[in-house]
């Protein structure tokens, strides 16, 4: 693996394995030996379909695993400190101040009984306990302005249900930014939003990233969102990283047949052909993965060799690796 750059990485995930208990059976491995780095100020996108393990990766990093999920192996280094070995209390201190998370459904992450300003002030109180109420309110308004909410003073007095979906997501981002974190984890933050609102939120995240130098892990199923926002991309399939590259390399020169398949299956405004080129079949059941390369039952290139064992994540070019024994042979690349 090409992990010589731990030193300057903001976050470094090494051989992470996350498992969930299954009734009467062996534990289910949902995240299967994942390694990647996030450098300060970088936007890393993790793209994958449902069941790929992308959301569980983010929950592992945040220490927010639910329903009995545990980290079975590996380390998560934040500025050199291993999060996996930290006590719950130590981790809680990091949350919000060093790293924060925003979710897909802002309504369920906000307390419906509290005003917007109270919720943001709560977040501030945790990180800066000694602050006069007046200073704190000024900071709240400043945060709301930072996430480009018009009439910040008025909106601050609203309850969550009085806000539109896009506004709620902005408030969530404001709360996430309260502790001035170095790392922001965004789990499908725009999936539930309208197209025009999505564009606004993406622009906001990009803007915050370039202004404050916040590192971002952006989790999504949508390749076009990746094309818009990411610096580097990890493609996940059935719990494994199948391809890793800079965003330009990935779109110019995809190597793994799954990545290529996704690109061909995605309808775009530029697509001219009459029929799309879907990937046949369905994503594998995570509790019951096929032998060898998990993509082989759906892969046009698969041979018997692919069934034997899971290929390594092999470097192809600089900063570009793919987990395939026939990389780059998926036929013609993405059109145009």
């Amino acid at each position: 693996m090409t992990h010589d750059s731990h030193q300057d990485a903001l976050l470094s995930v090494n051989h992470l394995v996350t498992q969930f208990p299954a009734k009467g059976k062996k534990n289910i491995t949902v995240v299967d030996d994942i390694s990647f780095d996030v450098k300060p100020g970088e936007i890393v996108a993790i793209v994958g379909e449902s069941g790929s393990g992308k959301s569980i990766t983010s929950q592992s990093i945040m220490g927010l695993l639910k329903s009995g999920g545990t980290i079975a192996n590996g380390e998560i280094l934040y500025q050199g400190h291993n999060l996996v070995e930290m006590s719950k209390k130590e981790r809680r201190k990091l949350r919000g101040k060093e790293m924060s998370m925003i979710f897909q459904e802002p309504m369920s992450s906000l307390n419906p009984m509290l005003r917007v300003k109270t919720q943001i002030a709560e977040a501030l109180k945790i990180h800066v306990p000694k602050q006069s109420p007046k200073e704190r309110m000024e900071k709240v308004i400043e945060l709301l302005k930072q996430v480009e909410i018009p009439n910040a003073e008025t909106v601050a007095t609203y309850f969550p249900h009085q806000l539109s979906g896009g506004m709620r997501q902005r408030v969530m981002i404001a709360i996430a930014l309260a502790g001035e974190p170095n790392l922001l984890i965004a789990d499908e933050p725009t999936t539930a939003l309208d197209v025009t609102t999505q564009a606004q939120i993406l622009a906001l995240i990009k803007d915050l990233n370039s202004r404050n130098g916040t590192g971002v892990i952006f989790i999504t199923h949508d390749l076009s969102v990746v094309a818009d926002i990411a610096d580097r991309v990890l493609v996940m399939y059935a719990g494994k990283i199948v391809e890793e590259a800079t965003v330009y390399d990935l779109f110019e020169n995809p190597q793994h047949p799954y990545t290529m398949g996704l690109m061909k299956a995605m309808p775009t405004l530029e697509t001219q052909s009459d029929l799309l080129d879907p990937i046949p079949g369905n994503a594998p059941d995570i509790a019951n993965k096929p032998k060898g390369c998990p993509f082989h039952p759906r892969c046009p290139l698969a041979t018997e060799k692919c069934v034997e064992k899971i290929p390594e994540l092999n470097p192809i070019l600089n900063d570009h690796s793919a987990r395939c024994i026939y990389p780059g042979k998926g036929g013609n690349n993405h059109e145009q």
Binding site: V195, T196, Q198, A199, L202, D222, L223, S224, V225, A227, D228, A230, V247, Y248, F251, M266, T268, L269, E270, H334, Q336
Partner: peptide, 8 residues
């Protein structure tokens, strides 16, 4: 508002 299909 539609996100691009290619970073280019």
């Amino acid at each position: 508002a539609v996100p691009p299909s290619h970073p280019r």
